[in-house]
């Protein structure tokens, strides 16, 4: 196992852990987004989907949750350790350093990541656990006696600051993926060599799809399409 310890201790090893856990996260958000979009089909479909996740698929969901929790913990821990290392690597900063090609997305990975972590905690407490219940709708049931997550979504996103927080967080999620999806493949050394390595069409597509897919839900509620 000493090889694993060596990998864990090296900067590249830590980046590889970040890349793998990040890709797990990308896979998750894509599936989560597709699930969310069922809100546009209607209350019955959406509540049935939620009931399926908590009923017949409960064990599978718990398995995935454990994978995701481990991934998030490792991702944040590696980010913290590497950030400390980068800070230490330049004890005296420049008076002036002009970024030349780095994207705004890449430069907001750290603080954007912190915002996303806060968002994830809020989001779980809001829609999964119901500890934060701004619309007082978490414990409602629908006509079939199922947990009425559809009603909770509609009621929550009608509150302006809830919608605003979700929409802003999704902008940062899109930015995070725009850099992360592209850089993780390079960190893993599987990116195809390119004459223009900074170009990233696939990452841009993933970022836009994820951002738009998630943002459509609060926008749909605000616009009255989902009611």
């Amino acid at each position: 196992m000493s090889w694993f310890v060596n990998l864990y201790r090296s900067t590249i090893g830590k980046k590889i852990i970040m890349a793998v856990t990040g890709l797990i996260g990308i896979g998750f958000v894509l599936v989560h987004m597709l699930g969310n979009l069922q809100v546009f089909i209607g209350q019955d479909k959406f509540d049935a989907y939620a009931a399926m996740l908590h009923g017949p698929l409960a064990e599978v969901v718990w398995g995935l949750r454990i994978v995701l929790i481990v991934a998030v913990v490792l991702h944040v821990l590696m980010a913290w350790q590497l950030t400390q290392r980068a800070r230490a690597a330049r004890p005296v900063d420049y008076r002036m350093r002009e970024p030349q090609v780095s994207t705004w997305a890449s430069r907001t990975m750290r603080w954007g990541g912190v915002l996303l972590l806060v968002f994830i905690v809020f989001h779980i407490l809001h829609f999964t656990v119901g500890v934060i219940d701004p619309a007082h709708a978490f414990h409602e049931t629908d006509a079939l006696g199922r947990h009425d997550i559809y009603g909770d979504v509609v009621a929550s996103f009608r509150i302006w600051w809830v919608s605003a927080f979700y929409i802003v967080a999704m902008i940062f999620l899109g930015l995070h993926l725009f850099h992360g999806a592209w850089s993780s493949l390079r960190t893993l050394g599987v990116a195809h060599p390119s004459a223009h390595p900074l170009k990233r069409r696939i990452s841009a597509a993933i970022a836009i799809i994820v951002w738009l897919g998630f943002t459509l839900v609060p926008l749909g509620v605000i616009a009255g399409i989902v009611h």
Partner: peptide, 13 residues
């Protein structure tokens, strides 16, 4: 004691 790579791309430039 060098830092790690986050693929900013500044080095290449």
């Amino acid at each position: 004691d060098f830092g790690h790579c986050t693929l900013f791309g500044e080095c290449q430039e």
